[in-house]
Design a protein around this nucleic acid. Structure first.
Length: 571
RNA sequence: GAUCUGGUAGCUCAGCUGGUAGAGCAACGCCCUUUUAAGGCGUGGGUCCUGGGUUCGAACCCCAGCCAGAUCACCA
């Protein structure tokens, strides 16, 4: 809970605004400030005496009497500045140094510095300030973590709730957090340019959809007023992207925010980013090669290496990756061979092997449960699990050698799914049947099975879709791997949270009560009759308002010989 | 959804068997012209998450709730 009330420090900073304005300094000037350099570049390419102009927040200040040191933090890092009283105030008037810099500036303020580069006696690259400009005043004190001589951080700003809710603060004081989002940007860029280099087109498809298709997930529901129909936020892009291949594109991709109205935890946010790509005249074998090359390229672009540390694990994204069929994987970890087994056989095996089952589960779902419980967690380095049971994959083409399977792979890293791909189903009659099978599963009670049939998608398939392979990657999850974060909230700038409640301290004053109270606030105490006149309320309103304030404990009435005084009670 | 843990100053955290709150940094005042977790002296700052209860007395014990984190379940 947050309380909208000013702390002593915040009040002091507000008072400084008035003092600055009295000195003719606008704390929020409209200004084009001619920044010439960034902190870290200046430190990297030091040139003694170079004239520079930088801007940023003042993040520390060490006052030594007639001279001071401060650190300026810009978008790239920090650099120290040195202020000498007699250099920035050459004449008799030392106001800028003594009053403005030492008294009226605070940590967190944006200032602009013009000066020259030098090294201090201790060897720290610094800027000797000639001129200082206040660019924007900060009214709220920042958390101020400090790093000591041993590199240890003290007073780190760590509380996850506050960090996520106030990501701006997190970004200011935690450079490692900012770096995660810089890497996330690099990842998107690396992926995008990888596709564009190959001649594929980036497209955009609807987020608001009348039928949420392309995956099994619970959608968010909203309503369109003009059309007066329910609409859903997309759970996947797949069907729309395929329609563009039918339309004649032969390689398309989309970076898509998708929405699923399901649980939230350290690996699930209600809105998340995925990338889906579809390429014509390819199959899933081609897509495996493509995927491993893509991920190798991304890892190098982001971290400069294919090797990544994730928690206790070391992962190598160097291609090629191992390939294991789902059947073989289950044999490897359970000695159970699912080939040619009936639904009952598998059902019974599950019961005997500590897997919770119920009647809604079809064969595919049962196999998925076995894989999820006994196999998935064992794959640390990137591994393709291939050839999934048909029932689990209603949009995937039947396997060319085994009609009970599909040509599908998932890429597992550290026991988690990172990518999912098919040789896409392009037989419209088979597709219709698979949708209908899903519907039956849904009626049987399987909550994951698709409940909608997208007839427009079926119609589009009837015009003919080229043989195609498609693949989706969870961008958030990949970012987690590449930045060694165990929580999805750490790689999303503004993760979803319960709305914060802002409350005002004290009673909610009515309109009339406010008028009286505001007048009193200025004077602290006023004679009753003049206060009544000043507020201009009717007798009744005045009487009710005054009595209410007294009941709230905000005011007291003092009787003197000739007059009655209303006084505000300091809290 | 279940279990566990936590919520105290701007930030990080102490606070014993219940006796109406402390430290460091930050802030404010003073001293100091190359310091760097600068230093020295002094001062102010708190609905102890919320609401009930027990008690002479609650940050602490009990109940209910809110929010968050972790683990599990569910979910790609």
């Amino acid at each position: 809970m947050s309380i909208i009330e000013h702390s002593e420090q915040e009040i002091q900073r507000r008072e400084k605004l008035t003092k600055l304005r009295a000195l003719g300094i606008n704390p929020y000037p409209a200004i084009l400030f001619p920044v010439s350099d960034y902190s870290t570049d200046l430190k990297k390419n030091f040139e003694e005496g170079k004239n520079v102009c930088i801007a940023g927040r003042m993040m520390s200040q060490r006052d030594m009497g007639k001279a001071s040191f401060a650190e300026i933090q810009d978008s790239k890092g920090r650099i120290q500045v040195y202020l000498n009283r007699d250099e920035i105030c050459p004449g008799d008037d030392k106001t800028i140094y003594n009053t403005v810099f030492k008294k009226l500036l605070d940590l967190g303020d944006f200032i602009g510095i013009k000066g020259s580069l030098f090294k201090t006696k201790v060897g720290e690259i610094s800027i000797k300030v000639n001129e200082m400009t206040l660019l924007s005043k900060s009214l709220k004190p920042l958390p101020l973590p400090k790093t000591d001589a041993n590199g240890e951080i003290h007073d780190a700003f760590t509380d996850p709730e506050t960090r996520y809710r106030q990501r701006y603060t997190d970004l200011i004081v935690n450079p490692h957090v900012k770096n995660v989002f810089i890497k996330r940007g690099k990842l998107m860029h690396a992926m995008r340019s990888f596709f564009i280099d190959k001649g594929y087109h980036e497209i955009e498809t609807p987020i608001l959809q009348a039928i949420p298709g392309g995956a099994s997930a619970r959608p968010f529901i909203t309503h369109h007023n003009t059309l007066n129909v329910p609409m859903y936020l997309r759970i996947a892009c797949e069907l729309y992207l395929k329609k563009t291949l039918i339309g004649g594109f032969d390689g398309v991709f989309e970076f898509a925010k998708t929405f699923r109205n399901e649980g939230m935890d350290r690996t699930h946010n209600p809105e998340f980013s995925m990338m889906e790509i579809y390429v014509a005249y390819k199959d899933y074998n081609w897509m495996m090669d493509f995927t491993e090359n893509l991920l190798e390229h991304c890892a190098i672009s982001v971290n400069g290496s294919t090797k990544v540390t994730f928690g206790d694990h070391k992962i190598d994204f160097k291609a090629p990756y191992k390939k294991v069929t789902m059947r073989q994987s289950i044999i490897d970890f359970t000695q159970f061979d699912i080939k040619n087994k009936s639904e009952d056989d598998i059902h019974n095996w599950c019961i005997n092997n500590d897997i919770e089952v119920d009647k809604t589960m079809g064969k595919g779902k049962l196999i998925d449960e076995i894989f999820g419980k006994y196999c998935e967690k064992n794959y640390i380095d990137p591994t393709f699990i291939i050839d999934y049971p048909k029932e689990m994959s209603p949009l995937c083409k039947e396997h060319r050698d085994d009609s009970s399977l599909t040509e599908r792979f998932e890429l597992i890293v550290c026991g988690k799914e990172l990518a999912n791909a098919y040789t896409e189903l392009n037989d419209p009659i088979d597709q219709k049947k698979r949708f209908e099978d899903q519907l039956k599963l849904a009626e049987r009670g399987d909550e994951e099975a698709g409940e909608f049939i997208d007839y427009d998608f079926l119609r589009s398939l009837e015009y003919g879709m080229p043989p195609t392979s498609g693949m989706g990657i969870g961008i958030d999850r990949l970012t987690m791997f590449l930045t060694n974060n165990q929580s999805i909230q750490e790689v999303i700038l503004f993760p979803q949270m319960k709305p914060e409640v802002f409350i005002k301290k004290g009673p909610n004053l009515s309109e009339n009560e406010k008028i009286i109270f505001d007048l009193l606030s200025k004077e602290k105490s006023i004679e009753l009759n003049s206060l009544k006149e000043a507020c201009g309320l009717s007798n009744k309103k005045w009487d009710l308002g005054l009595k209410a304030l007294r009941n709230y404990g905000l005011t007291r009435v003092i009787k003197e010989e000739d007059s009655i005084i209303i006084e505000i009670i300091n809290q």
